[in-house]
Write a protein that binds this DNA or RNA. Sequence first.
DNA 1: AAGTGGTCTAGACCACTCC
DNA 2: GAGTGGTCTAGACCACTTC
Lengths: 255, 255
Amino acid sequence: MKILLTDGEKIDKNSVIPVYYQLARLFERQIFEGKLKPGEALPPENELASSYGISRMTVRRAISELVQAGLVHTQKGVGTFVSKPRLDNVVFELNDFRDEISKRNMKPSTKLLGVKIVKADRRLAKKLETTPGKRLLSFQMVLSADEEPLIFEKKFVVFSKQKPILESELNDPSLSNLASVHSDHTPSMSKKVLHASVATETEARHLGIPVKAPVFMMEQTVYDSDKKPMGWGTSVFRADRYKLTSYTGWSAKDQ
Amino acid sequence: MKILLTDGEKIDKNSVIPVYYQLARLFERQIFEGKLKPGEALPPENELASSYGISRMTVRRAISELVQAGLVHTQKGVGTFVSKPRLDNVVFELNDFRDEISKRNMKPSTKLLGVKIVKADRRLAKKLETTPGKRLLSFQMVLSADEEPLIFEKKFVVFSKQKPILESELNDPSLSNLASVHSDHTPSMSKKVLHASVATETEARHLGIPVKAPVFMMEQTVYDSDKKPMGWGTSVFRADRYKLTSYTGWSAKDQ
DNA sequence: AAGTGGTCTAGACCACTCC
DNA sequence: GAGTGGTCTAGACCACTTC
């Protein structure tokens, strides 16, 4: 028997809020507030179970949420310890354009500049792992927020179905959707590469920026389940309007 | 009672490999191989438990791993279903320079160009939420891989300790370490913003690239637990050598 | 009402670490 | 050997969806 810490905080077993969730938040709070510092051990699972009057499995569920969040880590046979925040790894997210724009309370729009059938040149043939001369569907479009052009996109799709260009293309003009609609296969993997570049004359004109202005260029390849490329495309983002932000650390969610 | 599917696959309860893990891999395999298609339901948890002769909690653990991995999703009162792969959200990682370079079997090196004490101008004062004239520690350095310069960095730290510049700075020249060494506080949060830009004359000279060549510019601010900025810095990456790659989809780990 | 996933319990045995 | 986290069981009750 040990003297129990007086947490001042309690668990309400009759609440609609799950016990494991209450316990996880309780520890999270103590870590954020500095009452539990990096390197310090949490009480053993058995002790937590008996002192809160809950089952050990419930304690473990709470702790496993903290482990997932990176707040603590466990050592078999030793204990559970508060982790040090890792501040120098970064994760940049670049999600669906329409979602992002809508989230910022702006109106997204897509202008389809042209759809045509083209023959693959050497570069396209290489990107799509096919032969030069192969017939491809080509799309060009401009994505805008509140009527201001932000992104200029070119996409090329290997087509195996003769399908008319439908409205659905404009509802979801993502490369994986385009590839999916015009092919018998289903996209199962996507590779994206982000470059820093400068605007070409064409890109500058469509985006309303100076030639050679800095831009992000994202290159996407969509593959089917056999790892054969189904589509390839580039998206050029205005760097004056687009930047990628990332927060790391414990209070990140407050931002 | 229902007729059980003949999976051909079995669970070995006496294996050293945990049962939940075996079951999760079994479903994962079936999803990757297309035997379980997006939208299809997994058998109910109770059925899985009885047909494999294991407890429902163990089944749930297996399923929860699949949920985490994004392979399936659950609907309360309805069932568990195979998810569609989400191919159009992207996550770019930009991890510690030394780790990344070492992983590529190259030799990372850091050249410290200069350390001095400077007075904050208006821009720095704003970035660090302090007043112009405030004395700051200033670092400039070039990071190279196999002697080729890749990144040019400037960092500014609000210092509250009079400490000599130690070797430790070169071992870990990250902004959070610099801020930590020269302050009484501990960094607890970091914000990074990635821009596309073009090289200034100074940057171009240090990186050995033409002026106005495209570069990535990453801006980092490190905060203490009270959300006061402790340090601010910029890292300029050669765009001809640096790009960010991201894979999404089910077979991503094969890459 | 029947079936589903979500939560929780009170045990059990194990492998591991540390002394 | 004592203490720790990791796995697993065989139940239970609940809220939810569907019919």
